[in-house]
Amino acid sequence: MKVIVNGDPREVPEDATVASVVGDVTSATTGIAVALNDEVVRRAEWTATPLREADRLEVLTAVQGG
């Protein structure tokens, strides 16, 4: 199925979860936060949160700014 990850379309397996896609995007394990369709998904819920067709996933971290 196709989902949108950080603004770009991405083909993922039917059983993809937030955790599996985050793992594809970054190897970082700390300092990362995820929003699924504009709602924060707590880290503890990543593995138990399945993705659906056309979901929008944002994977963010802290960068230089301000």
Partner: peptide, 13 residues
């Protein structure tokens, strides 16, 4: 700090 989309090409945080 600012919050932005992860960029795998960036080294060091």
């Amino acid at each position: 700090v600012a919050m932005r989309r992860v960029d795998p090409s960036v080294q060091g945080s």
